[in-house]
């Protein structure tokens, strides 16, 4: 169920503001039919989450098409016009370059980049936020992005690096396929970070867009000799703090809109 300011929400009113087969509708239906309570301070906060989830999914699908290659950290590559490759294999936005430009370049010139699955998730989140926040605000929030799996994340989105238990899985969630018996010769396949795209499909960098069975089969084929435990999808999720981001958005973006209206 969805609770807005301590009152249960009848979703019909809001449902009709989205197209019939839209992802927002699907998310609303899952939330409203759930036994768990999804609590918001306002309808706007809920709508912000729906929008950001939709953009996360869009950014994941676009990254799947970007030609960015799969590379372990020791072999990671980036476009050095915009990024500096750090000693640990991460990418740090070069001084004098806007974070928005650097993130967009990954999507425009994907073939110049190569990294592993967790860093790809961070790229997805930043791209999604760039689609939601006006560019200047995005650059103010994230003046110098450092991409390196779940490290060096700006506090406002650091929650994506934590996994938490949940009773409900929603499109746009970060999930993880764990491969406990991975062949140590291919350590990078100890697991696969993915974005839940809805419809039983997941995007994982290196795997592309696949269903769970295909990802598990692929990971199982990379297990060590004598392995007896299958790869599996963890029951926890990673999510940004949507409410905090929504409040930040309101505090940054609305005043300008109001100003324009005046």
């Amino acid at each position: 169920m969805i609770i807005i300011a301590n009152n249960p929400l009848v979703i019909d009113s809001i449902l009709n503001t989205y197209p019939v087969y839209s992802i927002e509708r699907k998310i609303l239906q899952i939330m409203s039919q759930s036994n768990s309570a999804f609590r918001y301070d306002s309808v706007n906060q809920l709508k912000f989450e729906l929008r950001l989830r939709k953009e996360i999914i869009r950014a994941a699908r676009q990254l799947a098409q970007s030609r960015m290659s799969f590379k372990v950290f020791q072999q990671s590559i980036c476009n050095e016009d915009y990024w500096e490759r750090t000693r640990d294999g991460g990418f740090l936005v070069k001084r004098g370059v806007k974070s928005s430009t650097a993130i967009n370049d990954i999507y425009n010139n994907g073939y110049k980049y190569g990294t592993e699955c967790a860093t790809a998730m961070m790229i997805v989140y930043y791209k999604a936020l760039l689609s939601v926040f006006p560019e200047n605000d995005f650059n103010e929030l994230f003046p110098r992005i450092h991409l390196m799996n779940w490290h060096y994340i700006y506090p406002i989105i650091e929650d994506v690096g934590y996994m938490r238990n949940t009773e409900e899985y929603l499109p746009g969630d970060r999930r993880y396929f764990h491969n406990p018996d991975v062949d140590p010769e291919t350590i990078e396949f100890q697991g696969e970070n993915v974005i839940d795209l809805g419809d039983g499909l997941y995007y994982g960098h290196g795997m592309g867009i696949q269903n769970a069975q295909t990802i598990i089969r692929a990971l199982n084929s990379l297990r060590m000799e004598g392995a007896d435990e299958s790869a599996y999808l963890l029951d926890s999720v990673g999510r940004p703090d949507f409410k905090n981001l929504s409040d930040t958005y309101d505090s940054m973006v609305l005043p300008v809109s109001l100003l324009e209206a005046i």
Binding site: E116, C117, A118, N149, W150, H151, I153, E158, G161, Y162, M163, Y176, H178, P180, Q190, G191, N193, L234, G238
Partner: peptide, 10 residues
């Protein structure tokens, strides 16, 4: 637990 840095920052 089997947790690792690929899964989470902590």
């Amino acid at each position: 637990t089997g947790e690792n840095y690929q899964l989470t920052s902590t």
